[in-house]
Design a protein around this nucleic acid. Structure first.
Lengths: 231, 231
DNA sequence: GCGGATTCTCGGACAACTCTCAACAACGGG
DNA sequence: CCCGTTGTTGAGAGTTGTCCGAGAATCCGC
């Protein structure tokens, strides 16, 4: 993955800068635009993005219109749409056709990163990475949504799956409960870190049934993947 | 399949760009033209397409006329006509004799892709792709329109067949209900994902009568083909 | 047209999942 | 070693996603 270029288009300042920061942190080169016209202008000149993250609900031109005009110019750059929860699905449907995709607000940052990578993987041969993450004898295939420890296949709930992916992506680094909350849970989630403890517990019950234990607590700091002997 | 070249001719902007995106996503190299004259111009110079997807109803020259002039120039490139539901089928039928084919609007994208591949296969352009898809002991011969599980032959309704083909084409990947809806149902279908659940149910009743079960639900994500033990 | 196959909608049953809370265990500094 | 802090665990309430069957509407071949 050699720094793919993303263009983020959203009129909410907070969200836009939050997304930009998160995506930069994940190795992308990020530009931003705060409305449809700016977006189209940015698409005109270099650097041309490899993927556009496009809010549907915007004051001047909505996301669909921006996309339509891009396509009319012969621009086939893939688009990841951001839609409100109960937005009219008719219009949203038909978007997953050309390798485009969409995400319902509110989403989690990890989900955004995962989708972005999936699109880039699928569309270009860019980021020729396979979609497989692994640590020790633990493997996760993101396309097939399959997780195995050794030969055993694990059955994880959606949240458990996302949490484990976050740990895998950040292997070698200790992540705090606050970080987990920010990246794995929806960005408007109101609760405290207690729920992370609960889900770490769920994960351990499924992942760490065999020695060595992989999910390690760093007291006072957070969690990380590390080989450690059974207690 | 080494990127066969398609020319799409349709005057509706939305539909044309949607088809172009979908076909590109399926590995074709796609050009587009928005009326009959442009189409003929595009047929003149390189790159010469291996197949023309040609809307019948167009303002200047209709699809029949475009095809007639191509043939008059000694151009035998196969044509896949797109026709309105109740257009005069006699005239269309006569054209399918020479290896051409037609599709009634509105169609599903999978159908378009399948027809395009079938024509290219028949004409001999396509790299020797067999038309057989398989997973585990499940086989689908697209040319013969035959599906077998082990030795047992399955009798599927048209929609069931298309759904199963979509699962087979995307084996190793989880497909969401929205993706299924976009690709298997007609592009103007207005309903929600509930119908996918129903048809998955129908399919399971025919395909997964014997262990192991192949059609697997990934809760909160979608469906995929995966060997999994009976419940 | 008639009858069977097919498509599609709907709502209830059920299971899986999310999240909260509170009791309990482990740790570490004084 | 004791006590406050931090992490772990289990039970349970409420929500969500999926499956299934019944039935209306439509299509198609005979």
């Amino acid at each position: 993955m050699a720094g793919e270029h993303l263009l983020i288009v959203d009129d909410e300042d907070n969200l836009r800068s939050m997304l930009a920061a998160a995506l930069r942190h994940n190795g992308f080169v990020v530009s931003a635009a705060c409305n449809g016209r700016e977006a189209l202008k940015a698409m005109g000149g270099p650097p041309h993005p490899d993927l556009v993250v496009l809010d549907v609900m915007m004051p001047d031109l909505d996301g669909f219109e921006v996309c339509r005009r891009m396509r009319a110019d012969g621009d086939g750059t893939p688009v990841l749409f951001l839609t409100a929860r109960d937005s009219i699905t008719d219009k949203v449907r038909g978007l997953t056709l050309g390798g485009d995709d969409y995400l319902q607000k509110p989403f989690s940052l990890e989900e955004l990163v995962a989708r972005a990578n999936a699109i880039l993987r699928r569309v270009g041969q860019a980021a020729g990475d396979r979609s497989v993450l692994s640590y020790h004898d633990l493997e996760m295939d993101d396309d097939a949504h399959r997780v195995t420890r050794g030969d055993r296949e694990l059955s994880l709930s959606p949240t458990e799956y996302n949490l484990l992916r976050y740990l895998l992506v950040n292997q070698g680094r200790v992540v705090s409960k606050a970080q987990v909350l920010d990246h794995v849970w929806q960005y408007d989630y109101g609760g405290d870190g207690g729920i992370v403890e609960t889900y770490i517990g769920y994960l351990r019950k499924k992942v760490d049934t065999t020695a060595p234990r992989l999910i390690t607590t760093v007291r006072g700091v957070g969690y990380t993947l590390r080989v450690s002997p059974a207690p």
